[in-house]
Amino acid sequence: MDARTRFIILMLTPATVLLLGLTIFPFIASVAMSLSNYSMVTPDSLAFAGLQNYFKLLQAEEFWTALRATALFTVLAVAIQLALGVAIATFLHHETRAVPLLRAIYLLPMAITPVAAVFTFRMMLNPSLGVFNYLLKLVGLPPQDWLGTPAMAMTSLLIVDTWQWAPFILLIAAGGLAAMDEEPLQAARMDGATEAQVFFHHTLPALLPYLGVAIVFRAIDAFKTFDIIFVLTGGGPGVATRTLNLLAYKHGIEFLSMGYAAAIAIVMLAITIIAAQVFLRRMRMFVPRAAL
């Protein structure tokens, strides 16, 4: 083995050990559990169940409802936060006054503990006592039952998630904008391109590699959001905002049927891996740019 290979292996060893212990073991344990009827309520009747949990899951109405809610939440949350984050980052890039102050303010939502943020929103969204409805009335709009109907509950979740995480996209987009080569933009403007054309033909494509990482992490996190939904709607009203993650939590941690919960988790993992593989290949994010 030459020195270069040895160096690569040594540098990857700590991460590999951690990953083996913390991902491979839980993964194998989860797969094994998903193929069993393991329940902490009746641990003695442990038996191999084959694909029973998966069949049961795929036939359950609650699984498809949860999948729809999860997909809707993830797609809308990432799309809204991406548009908002990039727009504000672009505005900020052209701004000259009070930039450090604005940046500090924009970081606030990410710093606050989600649980505290969600409680604050719960107070503000309260139909009779909350400030949201009070402000709506002030401007002459009808008050809303923010958490009472399925559509409004989903909207409220998106509002809270966007409040907290649009700044994450903004931060990474701002980094990309600062690193960007301005010359092609100036050249395009000289050729008479409008600001909108410059943005869509030059700025946005140059930003894509940066946004790629941001989108991947935001989409993965949105797909398995827990605290915001748990505290704000608890999955309700009814099961309207019960995502796959909450469904798995309910079966695993509340009902202690680990086998069934593990099957939900494995299905979630499969969906994420496939989606991420497709996305990363599209974005060509696997090619090391400076390779030795």
């Binding site: 839980p26 993964f27 996190d221 798995a248 695993g252 593990a262 939900i264 988790a265 993992l269 991420a276």
Partner: peptide
């Protein structure tokens, strides 16, 4: 993939 793994899949083991 460590970030993708749903928390419940990691939590129970």
């Amino acid at each position: 993939t460590t970030r993708m793994t749903p928390p419940v899949a990691v939590l129970i083991p």
